[in-house]
C-alpha cells in the first residue's frame, strides 16, 4: 500500500502550497498518473479520502488524469504507445522498448478557496 505514503506526500504538498498561496480549503486536486506508474487509481482514491479527512482537503474532489504510456523501440527506432511494461512494440513485435512516457506521478493543479 505505497499509495498511502504517496497520498501523504500529496497532503504535504497541499500544506506547502497553502502556506505559499494563503488558501484555507482545497476543493479539487488534480493528479497526473501515468499508465505505467506503479499505482492503482482506486487505491489512490481510497487512501486520499483516508488521509485528507479532517484536513484542509477534507471532502476535496480527486481528479485523476491518466497519461498514456509511450516507449522508444530500439529495434524499429519509432516512439510507440504501450499500455503495459511487458507489451511488445506494436509495429515490429520487439521487446527492446525504453519507456519514455507514462511514469508520471504529479500534482498538476488545485482548486482552492
Amino acid at each position: 500500500m505505497h499509495e498511502l505514503s504517496l497520498c501523504e506526500s500529496v497532503m504535504r504538498i497541499l500544506y506547502q502550497e497553502a502556506e505559499k498561496h494563503r488558501f484555507h480549503r482545497v476543493k479539487t486536486v488534480r493528479l497526473q498518473l501515468g499508465a505505467l506508474s506503479c499505482v492503482a487509481p482506486e487505491a489512490i482514491d481510497f487512501c486520499f479520502k483516508a488521509v485528507s479527512k479532517g484536513t484542509l482537503a477534507d471532502g476535496a474532489r480527486l481528479e485523476l488524469l491518466r497519461e498514456p504510456g509511450a516507449a522508444w523501440c530500439a529495434s524499429c527506432g519509432e516512439t510507440v504507445s504501450i499500455k503495459e511494461r511487458y507489451d511488445p512494440c506494436p509495429t515490429c513485435g520487439s521487446y527492446e522498448l525504453h519507456v519514455s512516457r507514462g511514469d508520471e506521478l504529479r500534482v498538476k493543479d488545485l482548486e482552492v478557496e
Binding site: 504517496l6 506526500s9 502550497e17 504529479r106 482552492v112
Partner: peptide
Amino acid sequence: IGQARIIQVEQDILAE
C-alpha cells in the same frame, strides 16, 4: 476570501 481559484502546482509526488 471565499473565491475559488486554481493553483498550478506541477510537482512530482516523489520529488521529496
